[in-house]
Design a protein around this nucleic acid. Structure first.
Lengths: 99, 99
DNA sequence: TAGATATTTAGCTAATTATCTAAATGATTG
DNA sequence: CAATCATTTAGATAATTAGCTAAATATCTA
């Protein structure tokens, strides 16, 4: 759980998650959106993977990243609960997500 | 906003916020709950202050910390919204909070 | 199988962070 | 007003992090 917050602490990684919210994207497609090198982006992806916030699958040459919305939701929800906040999951369109 | 997530990235600071959820506490009372030195705790408090997540007021010798629940809520809510999550504030018992 | 393409790993550096002890500041009290 | 109490600031160190370039790995294609 601490890993999730660590992952969210960096603006680049939050932006990656936002982009993935629109649908799965390859490492290259994601990297193209940022002004840092691909190895740097790869390291960010690794942090997101370790936090279990994204899922990576190879498709030919490319590696496709998908957000694991439910993990993000559970973390936020669990945290919010401690503070008496109520939270509901996205009502629709979870990009198909399985683990 | 990034400051809020940075502040939440550390488990000690999240625990401090949880303790403050129960009501205002002095720096010393908070520090007593952790196994690190007071200067270390003081640095954690500074991070929380910079993130605007807590409010500090002096009362005699002691400094009293209060959580600013609305700031935490707004940050979580704003972030959750991007991901299509719906979130409501705590229905009751915000510890009296003014800025 | 020899490129070409996509991504990650290795190895490095600079900046940031969490931690400590010792010293300084602010406020109360004898 | 000197001692004491509560907290922060200063100054140091070790660990972590974000960034880079160069090299390695994995896959496809000509």
């Amino acid at each position: 759980m601490s890993n999730v917050f660590k992952a969210l602490a960096d603006p680049t990684r939050r932006k990656v998650l936002e982009l993935l919210r629109q649908g799965p994207k390859t490492a290259g497609e994601l990297a193209a959106e940022f002004a840092v090198s691909k190895p740097t982006m790869s390291a960010h992806f690794a942090v997101l993977r370790e936090a279990n916030l994204v899922d990576a699958t190879r498709d030919g040459k490319a590696i496709i990243y998908r957000i694991k919305l439910s993990v993000l939701e559970d973390a936020l929800l669990g945290f919010a609960e401690v503070f008496g906040m109520k939270m509901e999951g996205a009502p629709v369109e979870h990009p198909d997500e399985e683990d």
